[in-house]
Nucleic acid binder design. Structure first.
Length: 300
DNA sequence: ATGCCTACCTGGGAGC
DNA sequence: TGCTCCCAGGTAGGCA
């Protein structure tokens, strides 16, 4: 569910509310939610108990809280994960609560950090922080993930941004597949991919190696812009499944131009928006503004 | 090495 | 009501 703007909204909330807090105790209610932690649920709890949360960082859709011992609490929200900050003495237990960190010494008064996850595709883990060539540290499971379009090292006009354009064009696949590949550029998911392609007037099945550099550059600009707009209003929510750390929804669903609008008129040309099967999901697109390449029926 | 596909889960809503 | 089917914002791992 959450893409970069939603994860960044959560990161920002954690930075405000739980950095500086100490983990007093850990309850793992569903072992599967820590399956990517080496050592299992007991080890997960042991490595967190007594540690202080010293920051809140993010790359793409991966989020982590560095600890006071050169490791970090890593979170991926998957399709339905939430991190909710509690401050009551006896906080409500959400039906999909998977892990609860009991906190003390929190400057904001937070008493618990809850990991709630309906579909359980998300996870928490404690992992070592590894240095990158550019000087920042990332948890080991994030080492293969590319930087994202809000990263200063990928800002427009930088060599980093040009390298992303080249990496996209080097792929031998459809442009949307490349945009969703987190090892090419991270943070873009199904919603913002479709939005960016609509803004850039590109069909999702266009071959990467037949796009001109300027077309790819405009697509990346569009993806960055739409994610910044979404972030400014707290992200995209269709329902209570995506919420910030206070349980509140964002407002960007109002700003979506194509995603979820099958049959409704394109806001540029009035043509009904189409929905096509794509990677076991859907691609939403305007057949006039985003003409399909030849042979797109074989690879919709 | 690179690209594609499926599995991993739970639940809401539509259709019968 | 209740069953079945379809759909959902993601990623890793295994296969060709």
């Amino acid at each position: 569910m959450p893409e970069l703007p939603e994860v960044e909204t959560v990161r920002d909330g954690l930075e405000r509310l739980v950095v500086g807090a100490r983990v007093r105790d850990v309850e793992v209610l569903r072992g599967y939610s820590v399956r990517r932690h080496d050592g299992g649920p007991e080890s997960f709890a042991d490595q967190l108990r007594g540690r202080t949360l010293t920051g809140a960082a993010r790359r793409g859709k991966f989020l982590w809280l560095p600890l006071d011992d050169a490791s970090a609490l890593l979170a991926h929200l998957g399709m339905s994960g939430q991190l909710l900050v509690r401050d009551g003495a006896d906080p409500w237990v959400h039906p999909h609560l998977r892990v609860r960190l009991h906190l003390d010494a929190s400057p904001s008064g937070a008493t618990a950090l809850d990991f709630v996850d309906q579909r359980t595709f998300g996870y928490l883990a404690v992992a070592d922080l590894l240095p990158t060539p550019d000087g920042d540290d990332v948890p080991a499971p994030v080492a293969h993930v590319a930087r994202d379009l809000l990263d200063p090292l990928l800002a427009p006009g930088t060599p980093g941004r040009a390298a992303v354009v080249a990496a996209v064009r080097r792929r031998r696949t459809g442009i949307k597949r490349a945009l969703l590949d987190q090892t090419v550029v991270s943070g873009v998911g199904n919603i913002y991919a479709d939005e960016a392609l609509w803004h850039a007037r590109l069909h999702h099945a266009r071959a990467t190696d037949r796009l001109r550099p300027v077309e790819v550059a405009r697509l990346l600009d569009a993806a960055e812009a739409v994610m910044r707009e979404a972030l400014a209003v707290g992200g995209t929510s269709f329902d209570a499944l995506y919420v910030n750390v206070n349980g509140e929804s964002g407002y960007f669903s109002r700003g979506l131009e194509v995603y979820g609008r099958e049959g409704e008129p394109c806001r540029r040309c009035g043509t009904p928006i189409r929905r096509s099967p794509f990677m076991n999901r859907s691609a939403y697109w305007c057949p006039v503004c985003q003409p399909a390449p030849r042979g797109a029926n074989a690879h919709p």
